[in-house]
Write a protein that binds this DNA or RNA. Sequence first.
DNA 1: GAGATAACCTAACGCAGTTACCCATTTTGG
DNA 2: CCAAAATGGGTAACTGCGTTAGGTTATCTC
Lengths: 217, 217
Amino acid sequence: MTPQAASAASRRPRLPKGEGQRLRGEIMAAAERLLIETGSQEAVSIRAVADAVGVTPPSIYRHFADKSELIFEVCARHFAALTDHVRAACEGADDPVERLAALGRAYIDFAVANPEPYRIMFMTGPDDVPAVYQGPGLARSAAFDLLVQCVQDCIDAGRFRPDQTDAYRLALGFWARVHGLTSLRIAKPHMDWPDDPGFVDDYLDVCLWGVVRADDR
Amino acid sequence: MTPQAASAASRRPRLPKGEGQRLRGEIMAAAERLLIETGSQEAVSIRAVADAVGVTPPSIYRHFADKSELIFEVCARHFAALTDHVRAACEGADDPVERLAALGRAYIDFAVANPEPYRIMFMTGPDDVPAVYQGPGLARSAAFDLLVQCVQDCIDAGRFRPDQTDAYRLALGFWARVHGLTSLRIAKPHMDWPDDPGFVDDYLDVCLWGVVRADDR
DNA sequence: GAGATAACCTAACGCAGTTACCCATTTTGG
DNA sequence: CCAAAATGGGTAACTGCGTTAGGTTATCTC
C-alpha cells in the first residue's frame, strides 16, 4: 500500500499557484454533504472533511479560522437558499396577508426539510456562534427584510388591526411564532405531531388572526 | 504535597456501604452548579464534575450511564421547577384566558432566566437527547398537562372560537408559539429585541387573539 | 536559474468521553 | 471468627476531537 492511500480518499494533487481558493469551495462542498447526509454536526469533524477532500486536517485552517467558521459558512449558504425558497413562495401570492402565510409555510417546509443547518443557525447557544451570526446581522438579512416588507404591505393595505403599526416589531413576532413550530418540530420529531397537513395552515392562520382586523377574518 | 491533594478539591472520604447513592446526589448538585454558573454545557465536563465532587472521572459512571444522562437529569429537575413556577402563576389568575397568558409569561420568564437547561432540553438535536426525553414523554409531562387543562378551561368557558375545539392541538400550537419567542431570545440574545416590557405581553396577546372569540377581545 | 511564496504535510499538544482492570473496605454466611 | 462476596471507589489508558508549530515541496517571477 502506497503512503498516499493511507486515507480513505487518496490524496489529491496539489493545486497550481493562484488557485488555492478552489480548495475552499471543495471543503465547503464536502462539509455540506457530510452535514446533510449524516444530519449531525458532530459527524462533520475537521478530520472527516479533510479526509473527504483528500487533504490533511491542518490544511483546512488555511481557509477557515476554525471549525465554527466553516460550519456557519455552510449554514449561511443554506439560509440563502431558504431565502430564495421563501421569496419564490411570496411571488405566488397577490394578497398581502396570503403572502405572509405563504412565506411562513415556505419557511417551515424548507427548514424542516433541512433540519441540521437550521438547528445550527438558530437553535444553538450564543457561545458556539461566530460574532457575525450572533443577531444584529440577522435582522438586516435579506430574508428578514423580505418579511418586514411583507408585513409593511399588510399594514399599508389596512389589513391589520389599527393598533398594530410597527412593522419591525410585528415581523419579529411573526418570525418568532413561525420559528416556534419549526424549531420544536426539529428538536422533537418523535413527538405526537398531527400528521394532518392542515396543521401548519391552521397554525399560521391563528398567527395571522391575532393581528388582522376583526372584519377581515 | 500528598497524593490526595492532586485534585483541586481534596479527595472525599469513602461513603459507608449502603449510601453509595448519596454520591449521585452530590454529582447532580455539582453538575447543576457548573451548568448554571458557566451557562455552558461544554463547561460541564465529566472531569470538571468529578473534580468538584472530589472523585475521579470513572466514578461518575457508577451512577450515570453517560454524560447525556447526567446532564438531562439535571435539566429535568429544572423543568420540574419551571412547572412549579408556571403552576404558581396560573393560580394567580381566575379568568381562563388570563390564566393562559399568565402561564405563557411565567414560562418565558423562567426559561430566559435559566437559558442553558432550557436550551439543552428543547433546542438540541434529537441525536443528543436520551430516549426518555425525545418527545412522547414530554406530551405527558405535568407541565403539558397543565397547559392542556388551561386550554380546556378556555374552551369550556366558551371563550375560544367555535371552530377551535381540540385542546391537545391548541395546546401544542400555543406551546410552539411561546417556545418560539423563548428559544429565539435564548439563541440570539444579541439581537435588537424591544426592551419594552410590554413586548412579551403583546406577543402573548396576539397569540390569544388568534383563537379567542371575536367578541371577546 | 535563483529566490520568493503559495500550498500543502508531519508531528504533536491538550482535552474530551469512556473503558478495562485493580484495590480496599465492609458486610455477611458458616 | 474468618473467609467470601459485594460495594465504593481508584489507575492507567484508549480513541477521537480541535488546533498549532514548524517543516517541505512545487510553482511563479525576475
